[in-house]
């Protein structure tokens, strides 16, 4: 399904791509739910855009809806008729058991085709990656700290990328 684009296509928002993943394609339909699993994070990036009520707070949101139970997540997914979910934070790996449970919940409720991707600024080890893949995670996106962008080859992110 992943789309290799023949042409570089700018859209009306000024975005352009040579390649889009299934996660991107789902978002471009407006069909991706954003599941924010925690505001807590190991890092303190100066450019972090999170709002005051989310940053470093132990809160969960499905899109704009505060989550107090699994039912809130499923309700929100149904309301927007979600075809997929993007798991973000904060640092989702700080809540790995919760993330694994949410992946299973969404997959069992909406089927295997419900596309799930996750963001992390950590370099998860092989065990963590395996657990996420086994739960059904479709796509993982690494956001290494900008200080090491120039030396990713020597960083633990190299191993994480190749394990994924």
């Amino acid at each position: 399904m992943t789309e290799e684009l023949k042409v570089i296509r700018p859209d009306e928002s000024g975005s352009y791509s040579r390649f889009l993943t299934d996660g991107c394609l789902c978002c471009r339909e407006g069909a991706k739910m954003v599941l924010f699993v925690t505001g807590r994070c190991y890092r303190d990036c100066f450019f972090c855009p999170l709002s005051v009520d989310r940053k470093n707070a132990d809160v969960i949101f499905a899109n704009e809806r505060p989550v107090y139970s699994d039912a809130d997540i499923l309700d929100e997914a149904r309301t927007m008729r979600a075809k997929g979910t993007g798991i973000t934070g904060g640092e989702p790996l700080l809540e790995l058991p919760k993330v694994l449970r949410y992946i299973s919940l969404l997959k069992s409720e909406f089927g295997k085709e419900h596309h799930i991707h996750m963001y992390t600024s950590e370099a998860p080890d092989e065990k963590q990656i395996k657990a996420l893949a086994n739960a059904g995670l479709n796509e993982i996106r690494f956001h290494p700290p900008y200080e090491i962008w120039i030396r990713l080859e020597e960083s633990p992110y190299k191993n994480a990328v190749f394990s994924a």
Binding site: C24, E29, A31
Partner: peptide, 27 residues
């Protein structure tokens, strides 16, 4: 080169949020 996408700041409002709201509004 490579399998790259540039996601603009405007995309988040003009496409991601707008189309999600449209899907939501329809239901």
């Amino acid at each position: 080169g490579g399998k790259t996408n540039f996601c603009s700041s405007r995309y988040k409002d003009a496409i991601q949020l707008r189309l999600r709201f449209l899907r939501t509004a329809q239901s």
